[in-house]
Design a protein around this nucleic acid. Structure first.
Lengths: 147, 147
DNA sequence: TATTGTTATACTCTATAACTATA
DNA sequence: TATAGTTATAGAGTATAACAATA
């Protein structure tokens, strides 16, 4: 069960930053989760819906993107299909694959959720000045997760 | 299903910041989730374990802190008790209440997880200069989630 | 042979409703 | 009456293993 931790221990300032980063991240994800629940979506399903606004991935691509097993995606997408949010379309190039797309209903849902995420998190960043917001945007970009 | 979004739409710069904040938050939580999985802990259980390092909450307090129903906490804690990670101790002041504490094993686990979170996220903040790290720490504090 | 996706199975997580015990 | 906690139940989410169809 126990395994050694590789790398040096964090210095004092790093520890504080990591703590703030983790706490803030959980708060943000919790907020998104509350919004998803209003639409009877799990966090995972909300992420799929958001993803499908820009892409038409295969089941395997969805699995990789979410870090889940392919078999988990089958149930996830099938339930969404039953609810009329998504559709599965065969890929003509590779007849093993299915590409997942949003229905009109699913697309409306995606837009509503995105709007609510924006308005729910707005009060958070409203505590910052315009200069601070620009700074934070740059620093988050520098972390290298976005893009 | 559909409901109106209250508040004004975000401006362009805010939209970009919110997007970076949400994407980064999901990446951080995903990283924590991967670490939890190494120890066969769910994200929720890891949060409970981390919480118990500093506190000895009642079942209800745990439920409130995690935003879950009390009945969900029963199963969560009972499974952890079965695994030897936690203990439930009656509160003498209010005999309806149970206070949850870590066992020695649970405490070791909590420490290991915390160390792994630190070393897993260290590469992320290593991309920043010392000045940028200090800046980011201040900005996250200004968001008002920590503390 | 390797990959895509599904099925069968089992377990965790979660909520709702109904309940007991204590306050 | 109100609160703390549990139980019973049901459903979603997830992984593992075995499988079929296609590459």
């Amino acid at each position: 069960m126990k395994r050694p931790t590789q790398g040096r221990p964090a210095t004092m300032g790093e520890e504080k930053l990591l703590d703030a980063l983790v706490q803030t991240s959980f708060a943000v994800v919790d907020a998104v989760n509350r919004i998803a629940a209003r639409y009877e979506l799990s966090l995972t399903l909300l992420r799929v819906v958001a993803l499908l606004r820009d892409r038409t991935p295969t089941m395997s691509e969805l699995a990789m993107h979410l870090g889940l097993d392919r078999s988990s995606i089958t149930g996830l997408v099938d339930r969404a299909v039953s609810r009329g949010l998504m559709r599965k379309a065969g890929d003509e190039k590779d007849r093993r694959s299915s590409r997942v797309t949003l229905t009109g209903t699913g697309r409306d849902l995606a837009r509503s959720c995105a709007e609510e995420v924006t308005s729910e998190l707005a009060p958070l960043i409203a505590r910052l000045t315009a200069a601070q917001r620009a700074q934070l945007t740059r620093l988050l970009a520098a972390l290298g997760v976005v893009g």
